[in-house]
Amino acid sequence: MYLLNRAQRHTVNTTWMIISLLLVAFLPFLLFIGLYLKSVLLLHDYSLGDLIFSKIWKPSAGKFGFYPFIVGSIWVTVVAMMITAPVCLLTAIYVTQYTKKFFLRIMHPAIDILAGIPSVVYGLWGILVIVPFISRYLGPWLGVKTMGYSILAASFVLSIMIIPFVLNILIEIFRSIPTELKEAALSLGATQWQTIKHVLVKKALPGIIAAFGFGLARAFGETMAVLMVVGNVVRLPKSVFDPGYTLPALIANNYGEMLSIPKYDSALMFAALLLLAVSLFFNLVMHFFIVRYNKY
């Protein structure tokens, strides 16, 4: 019935497993080395500080300043987190502490659907709903002239995209806090909100920080949705109503012409390397927070 006997099958299966495992374990290093080798051409001619802090982006003249893109990415990410963080924290507390079990059963599919919607669809929704809302209502109401395609639009769309991700972690964290802690605080006469404020949030703090950190890393690398609503103007934004440009959008917008200008491909690979470094760094740091949370 079988081609091989039992011992041979065991050997084949085990080898297959180990090869796969090695491939997966070396993947992050492979990514890093691959991108580094491609961007070394650029790093050879320019210093790292020049690339990151120079403001002029003119690939045809050989000027590669990533500063506007880095600033744009930071703006978009930070504003998005400012929307996501309070909403997620409040919702996570509400669904774990105040509502009955069945409410979580409604929330879970909702979170799953939000997480499943592809980023292009989010971008399209941003163009359909958020951009006109900002240019027609929010801008004039605040007395700002804006096209709608702006840092704010990108941040809002982005904040919705990372809500399911952050919320899932936060709900997990609040559910893992032992009930005894809560009961002890309540029996000492604390109100429910006091218990949440002084006991639960304090206990969960490393976990909460980690959840926000993971969300931040995810937001920093998001490409298509941001690209579609951020405006793509290479300029330092002065307010959230200005258009901007982000690192992922830079890579995605210029892949077509990158082989026609010298060092252009190397510059885009350097942008990818920067993204990779930021993502790895954030995930590493946040991992330590999670480990600390699990220890106490």
């Binding site: 992050p28 991108l35 993204l275 993502s279 991992h287």
Partner: peptide, 16 residues
Amino acid sequence: LLDLVWGIPSIVYGAF
């Protein structure tokens, strides 16, 4: 390591 790889943005995979 897997969690690290999970966090890497898809555009980086595209570039790689």
